Simulated scan of single mutants.
Amino acid sequence: MLRRRAEPDDLVPASLEAGPVRMDVDRHVVTVQGEQVPLPLKEFEPARAC
């Protein structure tokens, strides 16, 4: 029987939150205590394995 493997995009939640920091991965928006923090799109690219 074949097993379905999760695609890498399926493993990343739409938004991440840690304390006052919130990152909306789909919209490429980061907020700290409700204030938007400008970041370059490069910061939203997935990390590559070494």
Rank of each mutant, 00 (worst) to 15 (best):
F44M: 03
L39W: 06
D26S: 15
V25S: 02
A14F: 05
R27W: 00
P13Y: 06
V37W: 02
K42N: 04
H28C: 10
V12N: 07
L16F: 13
Q36R: 15
E45P: 00
L11V: 12
D9Y: 06
V25K: 00
V25Y: 04
P13F: 08
R5L: 10
L41T: 11
E17G: 09
P46K: 01
R3T: 15
K42P: 00
V21E: 04
V32F: 11
L2N: 07
M23A: 10
S15D: 07
S15L: 06
P8H: 02
D9Q: 13
E17R: 13
A47R: 12
D24I: 00
P13S: 12
P46G: 07
E7H: 03
T31I: 03
V37M: 05
R5G: 09
L2V: 10
T31E: 15
V37S: 01
F44A: 00
V30G: 08
L11N: 05
P46Y: 02
R27V: 01
H28V: 03
A49L: 14
Q33D: 15
P13C: 04
P46M: 05
L2S: 09
R4W: 07
A49Q: 12
P20M: 05
P40H: 03
R5W: 03
P40Y: 01
L41Y: 11
Q36V: 13
E7T: 12
M1A: 13
A18I: 12
R48D: 08
E43G: 00
P38D: 07
D9R: 13
R27C: 04
D9L: 09
A49E: 14
P46I: 03
V30W: 10
A18F: 15
V32C: 14
A47F: 12
V12W: 08
G19C: 06
E7V: 03
G34R: 01
V21P: 11
E43A: 04
